[in-house]
Design a protein around this nucleic acid. Structure first.
Length: 589
RNA sequence: GGUCUGGUAGUUCAAUUGGUUAGAAUACCGGCCUGUCACGCCGGGGGUUGCGAGUUCGAGUCUCGUCCAGACCGCCA
């Protein structure tokens, strides 16, 4: 037997018990006559005590172990002379009469402690060591807990958890596919799913009524702090469901998760906001509603006063940063530089200070008098002491800049508290958006999304105007989930593919199986998928989903621990009927 | 594809205008220490300053290239 208890378990009631513990050596404190070892496992830390006078042999043995050795000790639980209030097991310690080294350890490259001395790069290379640390173990435990809450809730709601294939078919829509060569069908490739979308719809056609899956999805696109090439979704679909059914079911699920994991009560129903309003008031489709600072369009107020920048701009808009009228010239210059970075691309920044004494000071005093500036501040309902920041230019770029500026000022004013969670449904997304590069419409969500019935007539004449029964769940400016009512009618699906520029043959070739399935009695259905990693990192109050994934990939999509991706042997390629053409690359390992 | 930031001891960082033997903390090793829990005290070892070239009397520091890491833009139906 390796252990009778875990290292987090023993309490004062256990004093006198004969026990066996196994775990990792966290720390050795050799005081001379006394030696202490902190023994660690997932459950906690228990102190082992060795008295040189009472048991010199055992003490000598204890001094032979090093950090991160795996040892087993037998002994009895005794009450401590000096108790440690910071440790759940701090009232007791183990008086050992046997100690066995189960596994030695080299000196670890960084300390395995709450606050490690190791940097990110090193910790990723030795991820299995980093995962020993308490913060990582808490995050992985939290992830487990959230997954359990999701399953518990959906099981109660009669959802079936059904697995769908991972080796599927490549489609040109959407993100790049990861492709997998087929040995038995040379020259042909599987693709890894970007989502189980069509399978879950087919499960609805098959009458399973309610489906979910906590499932890996794959997209071969560049990474971000919140984007991994393989990531986990809570993928769901419901039959005989309208948009409201999905929204209410999944806001209840979200509420249950926050209640059971964090003991936080989210107010239901969640606020709903049309996409168009999100764009005009917040400049993006995932507004952070922990604070206001809404964007106001100023075109009417500011045009026609010989200020060329404004007069020639398609769009002028601003935000009001409360209490920042004391920003110095230097602060504002820095902020101007900040919005001029290529990531934002603003030409400049116009400000109006509404001073505490009721006067105005702006960077455009030459063009606008006091009365005019006052009317601007009224537009924002600004008070003395507030600072108005204005950008102008092309509408999409300017809105994006204002959106970023709003978030930055929100940060500076401390308005984005991680303990506060404000959920929001963004609804009424456009069905399609124009893509300049390919000169055609792209599905904004995906090509199976149903248009709003009253807009459906526009599908042929003006697809850009059609709104969809599509929705995103946004919490604190993070897109946590998204879904839609699906098309369940073969003709409508065909029309949709046409609007997206598919020929009949292309549609048939790529999605014929789905349209065929719709011929045999498809129930109306709708669904949603949650970004599980994002949800967990939000709950954990972390900025990067990497922190809640056991073995994440780095910035370049590499796993630096196992060093993948990597080359494969010539005969492996030959078996697959593949030949590499690396004329673009100088070499490969 | 692009922009930016960084790379110095096992690790985290410092090093003034380009100027002496590249320092500190921590980790590690040795010694002392019977109540520590960030133990303490004394001593010790530890460096191709990512790599390559250039400028210079002299480069950790400046320039160019390259590799690696991170953040972001494009991209992500």
């Amino acid at each position: 037997m390796y252990r009778t208890h875990t290292c987090g378990e023993l309490r004062i009631e256990n004093v006198g018990d004969e026990i066996i513990l196994s775990g990792w050596v966290q720390k050795i404190r050799n005081l001379g006559g006394m030696t202490f070892i902190d023994l660690r496992d997932r459950y906690g830390i228990t102190q082992l005590a060795f008295d040189e006078n009472a048991n010199p042999q055992m003490t000598t043995k204890a001094r032979e172990v090093g950090r991160e050795y795996v040892i087993q000790v037998k002994g009895n639980v005794i009450e401590r002379h000096n108790k440690n209030k910071n440790l759940p097991t701090g009232d007791i310690e183990i008086n050992c009469n046997d100690i066995t080294i189960l596994s030695k350890s080299d000196i670890p490259p960084f300390t395995i402690e709450e606050d490690t001395d190791g940097g990110d790069e090193l910790r990723m290379k030795y991820r299995y060591l980093d995962l020993r640390r308490a913060p990582l173990q808490r995050q992985i435990a939290l992830r487990h807990k959230v997954a359990q809450e999701v399953r518990k809730y959906l099981n109660q709601q009669d959802f079936f958890e059904i697995e769908t294939p991972v080796l599927i078919k490549s489609t040109p829509e959407g993100a790049r596919d990861f492709v997998v060569p087929s040995r038995m069908n040379q020259g042909q490739f599987y693709a890894l799913p970007q989502s189980p979308q069509v399978f879950k719809q087919l499960l609805m056609v098959s009458g399973y009524d309610r489906y979910y899956q906590i499932v890996k999805c794959f997209r071969d696109e560049d990474l971000r702090a919140d984007r991994q090439p393989e990531f986990t979704q809570i993928d769901c679909e419901m039959s005989f469901a309208e948009q409201d059914d999905v929204l209410s079911t999944f806001e209840s699920m979200t509420k249950a998760i926050f209640k059971n994991v964090l003991d936080i009560d989210l107010k239901t129903p969640f606020q709903r906001m049309p996409f168009s309003e999100a764009m005009s008031k917040y400049g993006n489709d995932k507004p952070d509603l922990r604070f206001g600072m809404e964007i106001h369009e100023l075109n009417k107020l500011v045009k026609g006063h010989d200020f060329k920048v404004f007069d020639s701009a398609e769009y002028i808009g601003g935000i009001c940063a409360q209490g920042l009228a004391d920003y110095s010239r230097k602060d504002l210059d820095k902020l101007t530089k900040w919005v001029q970075r290529p990531q934002i691309g603003a030409k400049g920044l116009v400000y109006v200070k509404y001073n505490e004494d009721g006067t105005f000071k702006s960077s455009v005093d030459k063009f606008y008098d006091e009365t005019q500036l006052k009317s601007w501040t009224e537009e924002f309902n600004a008070k003395p002491g507030d600072l108005i920041l204005i950008l102008a230019g092309d509408k999409p770029i300017t809105l994006h800049g204002l959106s970023e500026l709003r978030l930055e000022m929100g940060n500076r004013l401390g308005l984005r508290d991680k303990n506060t969670f404000v959920p929001l449904w963004v609804v009424d997304f456009p069905l399609v958006e124009w893509d300049e590069e390919s000169k055609r419409y792209h599905a904004m969500h995906h090509p199976f999304t149903a248009p709003k019935p009253k807009d459906a007539g526009l599908l042929n004449e003006d697809p850009g105007k059609v709104r969809a029964n599509a929705y995103d769940l946004v919490i604190n400016g993070v897109e946590i989930g998204g879904g839609s009512v699906r098309i369940h009618d073969q003709q409508m699906q065909q029309k949709m593919f046409e609007a997206l520029g598919f020929t009949k043959a292309e549609a048939e070739n790529q999605f014929g199986f789905l349209m065929n399935a719709f011929k045999y009695g498809a129930p109306p259905h709708a669904g949603i998928a949650f970004g599980f990693d994002r949800l967990v990192s939000l709950i954990a109050q972390l900025d990067s989903i990497r922190d809640v994934i056991a073995f994440p990939k780095n910035n370049n999509g590499r796993d630096v621990m196992i060093d993948s991706p990597s080359g494969v042997a010539e005969d492996q390629l030959a078996e697959l009927g593949l030949k590499l053409d690396l004329s673009n690359k100088e070499n490969i390992e």
